[in-house]
Amino acid sequence: MKRLQDVEHHETEDLYYPTMCKVTGAKQITEMEKWYELEMPDGQSLGHSPGQFVEVSAFGIGEAPISISSSPSKNGKFELCIRQVGTLTNVLKNYETGDMMGIRGPFGKGFPMEKLFGKDILVVAGGIGLVPLRSLINYVLDNRKDFGRLIILYGAKTPSELLFTDELETWKDRDDVELHVTVDQPDETWEGNTGVITTLIPSLDLKLNTTIAAITGPPVMYKFVVMSLKSKQLPDDQIYLSLERRMKCGVGKCGHCQINGVYCCQDGPVFNYVDLKPLEEAL
């Protein structure tokens, strides 16, 4: 147990003060989602790993946890992509280049990159789940020789809700990326796959001993994706999931993001499936 006398003053932190970051790029990329590029003050680096998140602050409204969408290999700047679903995110949509955004973080555990080196990476992204996984994807692409196959499964509700469509095109054109995109509700222009994301899994040819799956999506998606992967006999400990909870403080104090005994903001948001299995509140 940590005791007061074990702690020196300099070891304590002002945990709740944001760093003001300059918005250096902003673009509404779908009806609901806006993309931002931000710059830390004084040339600092955010120093994140793929899968981590920050707390974004708007004074007068509050804070919200937002996944970092850029690869750590992108120098100097970092990117966020924010869906407008609440008061805070609806205010953030008014932020444009030149505005200052309050940022705390990065927080939590991202994907354990040391365990991913040399492996085939299977990315399973549902909807806005592509945002944190884009960080992983671009990291893999920037260090392409360090990884095996890169298989990306991406599902959205409608074609107009697909994120990062320019990048999807680039990934599609690369020989070293296997991209499969599906939508639940196609429109007349859609020529690709139709159906929920799990329909993409059965036909995959996976090397079971060397494939690592990274899954992010809406809460309802996880069980079904995990089930499909298990029926392909992918071992549990090769499955990583990034969960969404109400991560209010980001530093394991406020209690809002607790999943049984673990804090999503500290022990996650990226978890190995083996660690999630015993947690009844997880999936």
């Binding site: 147990m1 940590k2 007061l4 074990d6 702690v7 304590t12 932190e13 002002d14 394991g252 104090k253």
Partner: peptide, 22 residues
């Protein structure tokens, strides 16, 4: 209070709590 010390000072040690507790 001793348990609270652990909760607020383990992991990220919160300065606000620490200053009041000193």
């Amino acid at each position: 209070i001793l348990r609270l010390d652990h909760s607020m000072l383990s992991g990220s040690a919160e300065s606000n709590y620490f200053k009041r507790r000193q």
